[in-house]
C-alpha cells in the first residue's frame, strides 16, 4: 500500500465507487468499437461468420444451459474453426487500432488470438461491472490451456482499467510460463497504467530472469522509480559475482531511474567500456534517453532520428 504512494500520480488511481461504475459504462462504449475492429480484421482474413455467430450467442443475456460452458467451448474451438495464421496487420489497420486505444499493438497476434479476445469482450457485454468481469477472467484463466491463457493476457490491452483486475494481472506476472508472462507484459498499455509500483518492479525484474527483451514493455520512462534502480543494482552485482551476462537494456533502466547508486554504477561502467564496443553502444543509447542531466552528458551529442525502441531492438539479441 505504502510504496505505491511514492509514485506520482498513484497507481492505480484511487477511484470512488461511483467513478468505477461510470468507468465501466464508458468502457462498454469503447468495447463495441473494439469488437467491430476485431470482426473486420477477422472478416478480411478468414470466414468471420462462425465467429460473428458465436459472439452473438455469447452476448445473449440468458442462454440455454450453462453460459460459461458455451464460452469455454467457443474459445477452445477458435483455432480449429478459424486457423492460427498471423493477423499480419497492414499499416492502416495498425494505426486504426492505436487510434482507438493508445498503445494497443496487435502486430504479433494471430487470427485465433484475436478471436479469443473478441469472444471475451462479447461475453462481457452482459456483465454488470468490472468485479464480475474479473471473476470471468479468473474462471477462464483457471480452466485455460496455455494458448488460451496467452490470448487472455494479450487482451488486457483492451480490458477496463480497473483495480478489480489487478489480482488476475498479478497471476500473469507470477507465471513461470514465459509466453504467458510475455503476453501480459509486452506491447500492452495496461501494465504501465495500472500496476502498483511493487508489481511493476517485479514485472520488470522478471523480464531479465526470463530472458525477454525489455524494449516492448510500454512506459519504462514513465514508471521508472528509485526502488527499481536499487533492485537492478543488486541484480547486476549478483550476476557479476556469478560471472553471468545480463541483457544490456538494464543500463537503460538505470539511466531512467533516479538514484545515485545506479548512476554511479552506470558512470563506472561507461568509464571502463572500450569505445565502439557493443556495451558502449548500449550505455550511450541509455544515457541519451536519461532525464538526468549528468547521465545524459555521457552520450555523444546529436539526435539519432530513430525511435529508441528500434535501436534497442537492433542492439539486443534477446528473442521473445
Amino acid at each position: 500500500m505504502n510504496d505505491r504512494h511514492r509514485d506520482s500520480p498513484p497507481f492505480p488511481p484511487d477511484l470512488p465507487d461511483h467513478a468505477t461504475a461510470s468507468a465501466w459504462v464508458h468502457w462498454q462504449a469503447s468495447r463495441s468499437a473494439w469488437q467491430d475492429l476485431l470482426q473486420r480484421w477477422l472478416n478480411a482474413r478468414t470466414d468471420g461468420s462462425w465467429y460473428a455467430r458465436q459472439c452473438q450467442y455469447l452476448a445473449l443475456p440468458t442462454e440455454i444451459g450453462r453460459p460459461m460452458d458455451l464460452l469455454f467451448r467457443t474459445i477452445g474451438q477458435a483455432p480449429r474453426k478459424l486457423g492460427k495464421q498471423d493477423l499480419a496487420l497492414n499499416d492502416a489497420e495498425r494505426e486504426n487500432a492505436n487510434a482507438l486505444q493508445a498503445g494497443f499493438n496487435a502486430s504479433r497476434w494471430s487470427v485465433d488470438q484475436a478471436a479469443r479476445v473478441g469472444m471475451i469482450l462479447a461475453a462481457s457485454s452482459r456483465l454488470p461491472n468490472s468485479t464480475v468481469f474479473a471473476a470471468l477472467l479468473d474462471e477462464l484463466a483457471n480452466h485455460g490451456d496455455i494458448q488460451e491463457q496467452i490470448a487472455l493476457y494479450q487482451g488486457f490491452a483492451l480490458y477496463p482499467r480497473d483495480p478489480a483486475l489487478l489480482r488476475r494481472a498479478g497471476e500473469a506476472i507470477r507465471s513461470g510460463i514465459r509466453p504467458v508472462f510475455a503476453a501480459f507484459a509486452l506491447r500492452s498499455p495496461w501494465p504501465q497504467a495500472m500496476l502498483t509500483q511493487s508489481m511493476w518492479n517485479q514485472m520488470i525484474v522478471k523480464t531479465f530472469f526470463l530472458d525477454l527483451p525489455l524494449w516492448p514493455v510500454q512506459g519504462l520512462a514513465e514508471r521508472a522509480n528509485e526502488n527499481l534502480g536499487e533492485i537492478l543494482c543488486d541484480l547486476i552485482a549478483e550476476r557479476t559475482a556469478a560471472g553471468r551476462s545480463l541483457n544490456p537494456e538494464i543500463w537503460r533502466l538505470l539511466a531512467l531511474c533516479p538514484g545515485e547508486r545506479g548512476h554511479t554504477r552506470l558512470r563506472q561502467r561507461h568509464a571502463g567500456s572500450p569505445a565502439g564496443s557493443h556495451e558502449m553502444h548500449a550505455l550511450q543509447l541509455a544515457a541519451r534517453e536519461s532525464p538526468h542531466a549528468d547521465i545524459r552528458s555521457l552520450a555523444p551529442a546529436g539526435p539519432s532520428g530513430i525511435a529508441f525502441s528500434d535501436e534497442w531492438a537492433q542492439l539486443t539479441q534477446w528473442q521473445e
Partner: peptide, 28 residues
Amino acid sequence: PVDQRTLYGGNSVLRGQAPRVEQDNPDR
C-alpha cells in the same frame, strides 16, 4: 508462426535446429 513464437522459439524438426532449454540461463 504463432506456435513457434510463443512456445518453440522458432525451432522445428525440419530446420534441424537443436531445440533445447537455454543452457546459459537456469532461471527460465
